[in-house]
Amino acid sequence: MKIGCIIEARMTSSRLPGKVLMDIWGKPAIIRQIERIQRSRFIDSIIVATTINASDDVLVELLEKENIPYYRGSEDDVLGRVAETASYFNLDVVVEITGDCPLVDIAESDRVIERYLEGGFDLVSNNLLRTYPIGMDTIAVANRVLQETARSTGDPAHREHVCLYLYEHPFDYSFSNIEAPPFLRDAKLRMTLDTKEDYEFIGKIYEELYPQKADFNLYDMMRLLNRKPELRSINNNIMQKKVR
């Protein structure tokens, strides 16, 4: 069984253009995210699904330099782009982590993958019922289901959000949700990279934790925020964009 993590990434973010290449402790954000995902116990390959736009040439140059596999597809049809990527790389299981998660704790993501591998579900996620901070989102879905989804809908919202069609057809597929352990529960906490304030927050997390422990995890981050609650004020006024 081939398990691939597909990271959706592009340079033309509406809120924070170029965010995937913004510097985080000396390296581009996308590289920091990939470093964290590489520690997974289950993921065989990490692939960036970017676009055919000329604006993403600079991202592709970085990926080629770092020997990171990638696929280029439609900017607006994200579902199609991810499905094409999964088909091109012949994946059995797709682990979806969007390209704005440079703090993702892959040990918590592995809990999602492990539940999927236990069998019985088409899709396992940790955000069907959100208990983790925003930015820890991980989905494991069968590639056959992803391909079926891509053939089944032309709804613009479904094409923009990879698993929205599945979530809106709960009686057609089997789901499971992983909830955060008590100490890690904070559904409103932003650990995603989407605004200047998020970038400042993430920079502070790396500044505080990375020099002592390069593979810091979500427990380390929550302990830091308990010690320094003022860090939460950096981006706690940012509203998460709604899917619909």
Rank of each mutant, 00 (worst) to 15 (best):
G203F: 04
S174Y: 09
A187R: 14
I24S: 02
S109I: 09
N126P: 02
R159H: 02
V124A: 00
I47N: 03
T195Y: 05
I37A: 03
K27A: 10
Y116S: 04
L128T: 14
F183M: 15
K2I: 13
P182I: 08
I30K: 01
S40G: 08
A29M: 06
S109N: 13
W25V: 10
N236P: 00
L231C: 09
D105R: 08
A9K: 05
G203Q: 13
V95S: 02
Y199I: 05
S233K: 15
M1D: 04
I178R: 00
R144G: 01
K228M: 11
I6G: 01
F171N: 08
V78N: 04
D92E: 14
G4Q: 05
D186E: 13
D44K: 07
Q212V: 09
Y132I: 06
F89G: 08
T51I: 06
S14W: 02
Q38L: 09
K242T: 06
S55V: 12
E207A: 11
F216L: 05
L117W: 11
L164D: 04
L209V: 12
Y206V: 09
R111Y: 09
R115P: 01
E84S: 13
E108K: 10
Y88H: 15
M11F: 06
I43M: 04
D44N: 15
Y116P: 07
L103H: 10
V78C: 03
R244D: 08
N90S: 14
Y167D: 06
G18Y: 04
S40T: 04
R244I: 05
D77Y: 10
R111P: 02
E108R: 10
Y206T: 11
P170T: 10
S55N: 10
P211D: 09
N237K: 14
I37V: 15
N127T: 14
K242Y: 03
G99D: 09
E108W: 05
K213Q: 10
I47C: 05
Q212G: 11
I34M: 05
I6R: 03
L225R: 11
R190K: 12
E108T: 06
A140C: 13
V145W: 08
V141F: 00
Y173R: 09
I202D: 02
T192G: 08
H161L: 13
R72W: 03
I7M: 04
I97W: 00
R115T: 15
L128S: 07
R185K: 15
P133W: 05
S45A: 14
N67P: 00
M1F: 14
L184M: 12
V20S: 01
